[in-house]
Amino acid sequence: MQQVTVRYFAGARAAAGVSEESASAGRSLDELTAELVQRHGERLAAVLRVASFLVDGTACHDRRTPLPAGVTIDVLPPFAGG
């Protein structure tokens, strides 16, 4: 089975309970996030609603494009700071 790697940062890591995991490739970011919510619950869903996503280091603006095998998706929640 073809896979993608999902890496969580800051609050996303706390909500997921893991720093990294694998998921099936070939689905869109919207489909992937739905699967991640099923795995980890509403706490992660709240983070994913406001998070930014990088696919192999590039911001993902089209959440319906299929994710190819082997890519890394970084989940970046909003960061506080000043």
Rank of each mutant, 00 (worst) to 15 (best):
His40Ile: 04
Asp56Val: 01
Gln2Asp: 15
Gly26Arg: 00
Thr58Ala: 13
Ala46Pro: 08
Tyr8Glu: 10
Leu44Pro: 05
Val50Lys: 05
Ser28Thr: 13
Gly57Ala: 14
Leu29Ile: 04
Met1His: 14
Ala51Leu: 09
Arg49Trp: 02
Thr5Phe: 01
Val55Pro: 00
Met1Cys: 05
Arg39Asn: 08
Asp62Arg: 08
Thr65Ser: 08
Ala69Tyr: 00
Arg39Leu: 11
Glu31Arg: 05
Ala45His: 12
Gly70Met: 11
Leu48Asn: 07
Glu20Cys: 06
Leu67Phe: 13
Asp74Thr: 04
Thr5Glu: 10
Ala12Ile: 07
Phe53Met: 12
Gln2Lys: 14
Leu67Arg: 00
Pro66Ala: 12
Ser22His: 07
Tyr8Asp: 10
Gly57Cys: 12
Ala15Pro: 15
Pro78His: 11
Asp74Gly: 09
Ala51Ser: 15
Ala14Thr: 13
Arg64Asn: 04
Ser22Phe: 00
Asp62Tyr: 07
Val4Pro: 05
Leu36Arg: 06
Ala14His: 14
Arg13Ala: 15
Gln38Arg: 14
Thr5Asp: 06
Phe53Gly: 03
Gly70Ser: 06
Glu42Ile: 03
Gly70Pro: 10
Met1Phe: 07
Gly26Asn: 06
Thr33Ile: 04
Leu32Ser: 03
Leu48Ser: 07
Ser28Asp: 04
Gly11Phe: 00
Gln3Val: 09
Val6Tyr: 01
Gly11Ile: 00
Leu29Glu: 08
Gly57Val: 13
Val50His: 08
